[in-house]
């Protein structure tokens, strides 16, 4: 009885979801055909996406090139962020001392550093990597810290009583308890890294991706420009889904 009700409820929600998307696309299409506007129609955007991402592959290659810096910066952010978050989560004093600084840096507009990076690193891939690193690292620190701090101290004490060494206590008890929160951080960090990659392309120096975004918009090729934006959104979604899937696989093999 309640099963069938839950089913129809879910079906209703899926229907609403599909209906809203279809209605929005139709409204968008109707607007672009009826009014004289710069905005490209959804059909034109989709066609441009297929052309540049699939057929000729210019957009795909541009994003793949930019992803190299993003991946490097992200890897660095994970390598630094997780241990730092662990330390802050384990020690209340450390957290009391450095939480405000971490929060302030987390809230700071990192892009403002881009002009400085040009002075420090020149127009080099290193500048892009460091910018991506700063975009991603703080969310990883904060989520790891939260996960470690919320570890059940009873489980830790129990492990110690049964003679567990530091390897087991930190590597098993704390890590396993904090893992869901850490994985959230890694997923959000991947999304931030993609945003950092875009910022690096636009505010440091333009590779193929930055040039694509700037040139298409400057020449009012709105459909091509929006296709680029769409491709970047999808890249972000795929990156986050990939990290989440890797995390699930790691959790399963670990337990």
């Amino acid at each position: 009885m309640s099963d069938t009700r839950a089913l129809t409820d879910r079906r209703r929600r899926v229907l609403l979801r599909v209906a809203s998307v279809v209605a929005l696309l139709l409204a968008w299409y109707a607007y672009t055909t009826a009014a004289r506007t710069l905005l490209a129609s959804p059909v034109a955007v989709a066609a441009s996406f297929v052309e540049h991402f699939v057929v000729t592959g210019t957009l795909r290659r541009a994003i793949a090139d930019a992803l190299v810096h993003a991946a490097l910066g992200y890897a660095l952010a994970v390598a630094v962020g997780v241990p730092l978050g662990f330390a802050l989560g384990l020690s209340e004093r450390l957290a009391a001392a450095y939480d405000p600084a971490v929060d302030a840096l987390y809230a700071a507009p990192v892009v403002a550093l881009a002009p400085l990076f040009v002075v420090w690193f020149g127009l080099t891939p290193l500048a892009k990597t460091v910018l991506v690193f700063l975009f991603a690292v703080f969310v990883i620190i904060v989520t790891t810290e939260t996960g470690v701090r919320e570890t059940d101290r009873g489980a830790v004490d129990a492990a110690r009583v049964f003679g567990a060494g530091p390897c087991v206590v930190y590597g098993e008890v704390y890590l396993r308890s904090a893992l869901p929160s850490i994985l959230t951080g890694l997923r959000l960090g991947a999304g931030r890294a993609i945003r950092g990659m875009v910022a690096a392309e636009l505010f440091l120096y333009a590779g193929d991706l930055g040039s694509y975004l700037i040139d298409t918009a400057a020449t009012f090729r709105m459909a091509d420009s929006l296709a680029g934006v769409l491709a970047l959104s999808l890249t972000g979604v795929v990156a986050m889904a990939l990290v989440a899937a890797l995390g699930r696989a790691a959790t399963r093999s670990g337990s």
Partner: peptide, 28 residues
């Protein structure tokens, strides 16, 4: 109901990098 209606567009725009829209927004 409102959630089912608004979730897809809002989440799509949420994951979109606003920075990637800058060249387009300045043109418009």
């Amino acid at each position: 109901t409102a959630d089912a209606l608004a979730d897809t567009p809002v989440t799509t725009l949420f994951v979109t990098s606003v920075a990637s829209l800058l060249p387009l927004l300045i043109a418009v």
